[in-house]
Computed example of a mutant assay.
Amino acid sequence: MSMATKLVNTAEVASSDAQTLVADMRKAISTMKSLAVDFERDGKSDKVKKLEEMVLEMVASYEDCAAMAQAIKAVPGVYQPSDQPTDFKTLIEVEVSKIKGASSASQQNHPLFRQFRETVWNVHHAGQPMPGEEQEDIVMTSTQMSILNVTCPLTGKPVIELIDPVRCVDCKHIYEKDPVMQYIRTKKPPQCPIAGCPRVLERGKVICDPLLRIEIEELRSSETGAPNATNIDDLTDLIDDDDE
């Protein structure tokens, strides 16, 4: 196995581990959002405020971890063989800086934080613009931006009803697994079935990534109004401890 192949494989494993942590953070933010809705309904504004502060901190960590996952995956592409030992730590730090530098959004305007604030606001002000926003402003939530197609182009089923959802690494479109794998085997070339998408699907690049099921669950909850939180009792205890 060549050095380049080993590096790619190692980067894939390390990046996957980081992405799993990102997914766990996303779940935690979703839990906080559901809990904040309950507190807002009960008029416990002080607890909502504490949750908002916690979410803001979590978003910062989320961004750091997401940038790290992306940077690790990029390292094989920038690695240059040399007689001298390679400083991979510096390579990763440089890539992280590039990724963060390309993102100009502040934490206050981060889609996940905006989604949290909008959800809480809608408890008592559904249909009304948030303070500082015009009625005609269209705010894309993080879930809406992440889920590019709300139905599988091969089965016509809504993504929230897919049994085994997968997403293309390249174009980010979502499909039911068995039909899309059959499509890849039989269609030559297997161009993405979403109208206008030029990407050609590859078996190894159509996967259930760590965030996919979380994002689908968030979309399902936003459409049904049902909470998708878990471990709410633990968070409630944490907030109550802060009050003491």
Results as ranks from 00 to 15, higher is better:
R114G: 13
P129S: 02
C168Y: 01
K89W: 06
I184W: 02
A4K: 14
P190A: 10
S34V: 07
M1E: 10
D42N: 10
E218N: 15
K205T: 03
V22Y: 06
V200R: 08
V206H: 06
E202K: 13
M68L: 14
V123G: 05
T90A: 10
P189Y: 00
D87M: 05
I239H: 11
V13T: 12
R167V: 08
S222N: 12
L212C: 12
I92V: 15
Q128M: 10
T5K: 12
V123F: 01
Q84K: 14
M1N: 08
I29T: 05
D64W: 02
K157G: 04
H124E: 07
L238V: 00
E134C: 07
E63G: 02
A69Q: 13
N122E: 14
M54R: 08
D240Q: 14
K172H: 11
M181D: 13
R185G: 11
A71N: 11
D170K: 12
D17A: 14
T10N: 03
P179E: 05
G156K: 11
I147G: 01
T86C: 10
E95L: 10
M58W: 04
P153D: 13
V59Y: 01
S146A: 13
S104I: 05
I214A: 09
S34G: 15
K50R: 14
I184M: 01
K73N: 08
E133T: 05
S2L: 05
C152E: 00
T20M: 12
C197I: 08
T119D: 03
K157M: 14
K89H: 12
R117A: 08
M3I: 10
G127A: 08
M1H: 14
W121C: 00
P81C: 09
P190I: 02
D64V: 04
K47I: 01
K6E: 12
L7P: 07
V22F: 00
V22G: 02
S16F: 05
N149I: 08
C152K: 00
Q80V: 15
I216R: 05
P76E: 02
E218R: 15
E217V: 02
L56W: 04
E93N: 10
S106D: 09
S16D: 07
D87K: 09
C65A: 02
P193G: 12
E57D: 13
T86G: 05
V180A: 06
A23V: 07
H125N: 15
I216G: 01
R26I: 10
S2G: 11
G43E: 07
Q182S: 14
R185F: 11
Q128K: 09
